[in-house]
Structure formats: C-alpha cells, structure tokens
Design a protein around this nucleic acid. Sequence first.
DNA 1: CCGTATCCGACACGATACTG
DNA 2: CAGTATCGTGTCGGATACGG
Lengths: 117, 117
Amino acid sequence: MEKVSKETCKKRLKGIDDALYAIGGKWKLKIIIALIEGYTRFNEMQRTIGISAKMLSLELKELELNGFLTREVHPGPPVVVEYKVTEYSDSLQEVLQVLSNWGEKHREKIRQERSGK
Amino acid sequence: MEKVSKETCKKRLKGIDDALYAIGGKWKLKIIIALIEGYTRFNEMQRTIGISAKMLSLELKELELNGFLTREVHPGPPVVVEYKVTEYSDSLQEVLQVLSNWGEKHREKIRQERSGK
DNA sequence: CCGTATCCGACACGATACTG
DNA sequence: CAGTATCGTGTCGGATACGG
C-alpha cells in the first residue's frame, strides 16, 4: 500500500474520460440542469443559462443525439418547440448534485481565503 | 409545481459554474486522480494520463495555486521533484467517484446500443 | 528526469446580423 | 419564437526541440 494501484487508477481515469466525452465542456451540464428544473423553450433557456443562440442550438443537437433530451415540435400556429429531458438524464441527478454542491463549497472557501488576507 | 423553480435552478447553475471553473477542462480531474492514486513524479504522471509535458506543467501550476497539490523539490543529486495531493483534494473524492461511475455506466450503455443495431 | 520555449493548427465560443 | 449564417478571436493542445 501507499504505492500506486495501477488498476483502479486506470479504471477511474477511463470513467472520467467517458464522462467528459459525453457531458464535458462548458454547457452540457448547465443545459441539462435547466431542462430538469423545468425549462422547455429555446429562448427561455438561452436567457437563463447565459449562452448564445448558436452554442445552444449546437449543444441541443448533440444532447438529443446522445439521448439526453427530446425535441418536440407542436404545429401551430403558433408553432411551439419544446425540449424535454429523457429518463436517461435522471442518471445524471447524482452527478449534478454532487458537483454543484462541491462548487458551492469551493466558492465559499475561496471567498473566505480572500477575506482572510 | 411542474413549472420552473427559478431559485434552485440558479443555485445549481452557479454551483456547476464554480465547479467547472476550478476543475473543468480536459485534464484537471485526471491529474488529481493520478495523484490520489499515488503517482508523484512528473514523467510517471505524463505517461499514465497521456498528456503532453507542456499541458501537464501548466495544469500542475494551476492546481498548486488553487491548493489542490504541493510541489516538493528534494535536493539531490539526483534532484527529485514530488507532487502530492493536499487534504483539500479529498473533498473531491465523491465527485470523482460519482463522475467516474457514471462515465463507466454510460460507456456500457453506448456499447450495448451499438451492438443492438 | 523535469521541465520550458516555440510554432502551429483546430475549434470552442462570442457577437452580430438575418430568416421563417 | 426558434433558430441559421457569417465572421472573428482566443484558447486548447499536440509536436518538436531544447536546457538544467
């Protein structure tokens, strides 16, 4: 012990790799949060997340392809487009929770360090 | 209910934002894993993670500045440089575990979908 | 062994304008 | 409202070479 465990290390690295491939980047997790919290419309999400239309459009397509959400077009008029999370996105709830909590605590730590100077 | 809860949404978005700022990107989590698993040397980590010397050097500096690791130089000869995780990095254990597990399951899901065609 | 320096391409991302 | 098109910029990150 004390020394490197190559197997578990490789396994964890691989897992992180796969996760980042699917949900890495600046926007994907945020979009999924917005969807989970109930946002369904394009412009609504754009404002909430603070993302450009271009990026949102691109990311939504990727997320749909990967099974995280569905895109429904309700013929109008007015035509309405709704984005909804799939059940599969629920598997991310724990990830979201843990990561968001950590980020919150981390921010708090940074804040204290700066005021402590 | 059913409708958007703006408060919790904003809070989660902010948390994710802070987290990604500190540990986002392609390499930081992987480096921390390698350190936690016991790797301490530069070249060792480089090979294990599959990262270029340039990026590893850059990321190590950032991680040190943010309190995730320490850099120890043991005068030689031969001179030995060791990188070690700080206690604070332990706060990431849960994040790492959850994310890595999710990634593993996700990969498995993708694999099955492809073979199922 | 532990890096730094330099060059370079790819692309992530933003801003803006425009369309049905 | 829900996007697409275009343009421009910065950063990411690999390859290579080099130095203590």
